[in-house]
């Protein structure tokens, strides 16, 4: 989003307008932008600032405080490895380590081809399916280290990032 397209600028303004009547809408605006574009770069924060009158410094402070917001785009497939306690005591660390190792990235990073991001999650509430992994919302229950390679292949076959 280095050079913001006009349509994106319009969309962001529209998102800001959605919450015109709310008292303190910043986080709601940012959540919608995050959901729409997958990240909130500085240029976008500047537009939000111009629309809402909140300083960029404050917006940046909020964006960097909450783990849900990111400054950089995520991969096409976000591999969320649950590291909640229930998953952890059943070996979730080995699962996330295996994903890291096979993709050559650390949790929080994205592969160079833009395909995968690994996310360490804090309990997705699927404790009965521990250890659990979600990929773009789909839950993989009772994960084991030996399934990791197959799952990555499955998504590689599904198609590349634009």
């Amino acid at each position: 989003m280095a050079h913001l397209q006009e349509s994106a600028v319009r969309k962001i303004s529209e998102i800001c307008d959605r919450y015109k009547n709310e008292r303190t809408p910043l986080i709601m605006i940012l959540s919608d932008i995050q959901n729409e574009y997958g990240y909130i770069p500085l240029e976008v924060q500047e537009i939000v600032s111009a629309k809402t009158g909140i300083s960029v410094a404050e917006i940046y402070g909020v964006v960097t405080f909450y783990s849900f917001f990111s400054l950089k785009p995520n991969g096409k497939y976000v591999i969320g490895c649950c590291l909640g306690t229930a998953c952890y005591v059943k070996g979730a660390q080995q699962i996330i380590d295996k994903f890291s190792e096979m993709l050559g990235i650390k949790p929080g990073e994205t592969t160079d081809d833009g395909m995968f991001t690994i996310d360490a999650l804090r309990c997705i509430g699927a404790c009965a399916s521990a250890p659990a992994v979600t990929i773009n919302g789909k839950i993989y229950a009772h994960m084991s280290v030996d399934r990791v390679a197959g799952i990555i292949d499955e998504y590689r076959k599904l198609g590349g990032a634009e």
Binding site: R23, T24, P25, L26, I27, M28, L30, S31, I54, E58, G61, V62, F65, Y66, S67, F68, F69, R122
Partner: peptide, 25 residues
């Protein structure tokens, strides 16, 4: 309804109120 944005400390009540007010939690 207000949504959290991934910060455990926002469960603490004063942090939570700050978060509803659009600030760092």
């Amino acid at each position: 309804v207000r949504l959290g944005a991934g910060a455990f400390v926002c469960g603490e009540e004063t942090a939570l109120l700050n978060s509803i007010q659009g600030q760092r939690g």
